[in-house]
């Protein structure tokens, strides 16, 4: 079942958010709703919200359901409520296209404003929305460095030490008993972490896809896959190609 339905149906108490990892020595918790929480700086990271994707398509003649923004924001509310962070970092592709943030309906803007109240909110710019978020609380920037970590949208080509990025929408597949299961995942080798896409109408790219080549030390790479109410951690070697 999609995590969208869990966010609406499953009470937060049943959820196990104990899956811990470290990026360049900084402790982090992978939340099955798709957010990464850094307890030290009380920071919540999400990536690739792709808000207003439905309306972006409708503008071009494909009438996708207009509910994606609301659904994504509800999950965001749930994960923000769970961790009550001091800072929220949204790692880019926050909106599906340049027009998205200005065109977002008023009621959704208010939801974002309510979530941002009393917190620092940082919009990292992505390739879909390079011009920043218009008329919303928070600060837009291309990149943020803080306490041994660097937050950016696209993973760099360098060694990536301490990098937390999005853009790639990583997913992983496991096979058991002749059946395969594919899920979005946090991908990390301990040096760098690539976030799963948070938006409800975003697809995934398999960790074995050529676009992922060279990003990770595959010996150390673990896929923390998003399950119904917990994270499933699987080594790269045990994933299906």
């Amino acid at each position: 079942m999609h995590r969208l339905l869990h966010a609406i149906s499953a009470p937060a108490a049943n959820v196990s958010i104990q899956t811990r990892t470290t990026i360049n020595g900084v402790a982090a918790i992978c939340d099955p709703l798709g957010g990464l929480y850094l307890p030290e700086g009380r920071t919540l990271v999400v990536s690739d919200l792709h808000l207003e994707k439905g309306s972006a398509f409708a503008r071009r003649g494909m009438m996708l359901p207009p509910y994606d923004t609301l659904a994504t924001l509800r999950i965001l509310e749930a994960v923000v409520a769970r961790h009550s962070p001091a800072t929220v970092i949204s790692l880019g592709d926050n909106f599906h296209d340049r027009k998205g943030s200005a065109a977002m309906p008023e009621n959704f803007r208010q939801m974002v404003a309510a979530m941002a109240r009393g917190r620092e909110w940082i919009w990292i710019n992505g390739n879909h929305d390079p011009d920043g978020a218009q008329g919303l609380p928070g600060t837009s920037m291309d990149e943020l460095r803080h306490a041994g970590l660097v937050f950016r949208h696209e993973p760099s080509t360098g060694d990536g030490i301490g990098e937390i990025a999005g853009h790639l929408h990583p997913s992983a597949t496991v096979r058991r008993r002749e059946r395969s299961v594919r899920r979005a995942c946090f991908a990390t080798d301990g040096r760098r972490l690539v976030m799963p896409a948070f938006g409800v109408t975003t697809g995934g790219l398999d960790l074995r896809h050529p676009a992922m080549t060279g990003l990770f030390d595959r010996q150390q790479l673990i896929a923390h896959m998003l399950g119904r109410d917990r994270i499933y951690s699987v080594r790269f070697a045990n994933l299906l190609g």
Binding site: M1, R177, R179, V181, R183, S233
Partner: peptide, 28 residues
């Protein structure tokens, strides 16, 4: 294969690999 909502069950099994590995077992 049997239809059903066994997906998370399969994921649990796959995730147990990691525990197995940590405990020194090679029983995958």
């Amino acid at each position: 294969s049997v239809h059903g909502e066994a997906q998370d069950f399969l994921l649990t099994e796959a995730a147990d690999d990691l525990i197995n590995e940590a405990m020194g077992g090679k029983g995958t």
